[in-house]
Computed example of a mutant assay.
Amino acid sequence: MSAKDIFHNAVRLALEKDNWNITHDPLSITIDAFLLFGVVVFKIYSLNHIYNFLLMFFQPI
């Protein structure tokens, strides 16, 4: 279960006053480990390409 921040109850009450129907409180989201691994690898791969691109312009003397 996730921790609720200081605005949780205020936002929930405001939404309910505006006739919103809150069905899942808190909403839990699960992420597959394989998907998470793919995202991390993609970010590392992207950062490596950005680093190499920047090195073309900012070579140490």
Score class of each variant (00 low, 15 high):
Ser2Asp: 09
Ser2Ile: 14
Ala3Glu: 13
Ala3Lys: 13
Lys4Leu: 13
Asp5Thr: 09
Ile6Phe: 15
Ile6Val: 11
Ile6Gly: 08
Phe7Trp: 12
Phe7Cys: 04
Phe7Asp: 12
Phe7Ile: 06
Asn9Pro: 00
Val11Leu: 09
Val11Trp: 02
Val11Tyr: 03
Arg12Pro: 01
Leu13Ala: 02
Leu13Ser: 03
Ala14Met: 12
Leu15Val: 00
Asn19Tyr: 10
Asn19Met: 12
Trp20Asn: 08
Ile22Glu: 05
Thr23Asp: 05
Thr23Gln: 12
Thr23Phe: 06
His24Thr: 07
Asp25Met: 04
Pro26Thr: 00
Pro26Asn: 03
Pro26Tyr: 01
Ser28Ala: 13
Ile29Asp: 01
Ile29Val: 07
Ile29Gly: 04
Ile29His: 03
Thr30Ala: 12
Thr30Phe: 09
Thr30Leu: 08
Ile31Val: 06
Ile31Ala: 12
Ile31Asn: 13
Ala33Met: 09
Phe34Tyr: 14
Leu36Gln: 10
Leu36Pro: 00
Leu36Phe: 14
Phe37Trp: 13
Val39Pro: 01
Val39Arg: 06
Val39Lys: 02
Val39Gly: 04
Val39Trp: 11
Val39Ser: 02
Val41Ile: 09
Phe42Lys: 04
Lys43Leu: 11
Ile44Trp: 03
Tyr45Lys: 02
Tyr45Gln: 00
Tyr45Arg: 01
Leu47Ala: 04
Asn48Gly: 10
Asn48Gln: 10
Asn48Arg: 12
His49Gln: 10
Ile50Tyr: 07
Tyr51Arg: 10
Tyr51Cys: 07
Asn52Tyr: 10
Asn52Glu: 10
Asn52Ile: 05
Phe53Ala: 04
Leu54Gly: 06
Met56Cys: 15
Met56Tyr: 15
Phe57Lys: 04
Phe57Arg: 04
Phe57Tyr: 09
Phe57Pro: 02
Phe57Cys: 03
Gln59Trp: 08
Gln59Asn: 07
Pro60Thr: 12
Ile61Gln: 14
Ile61Ser: 13
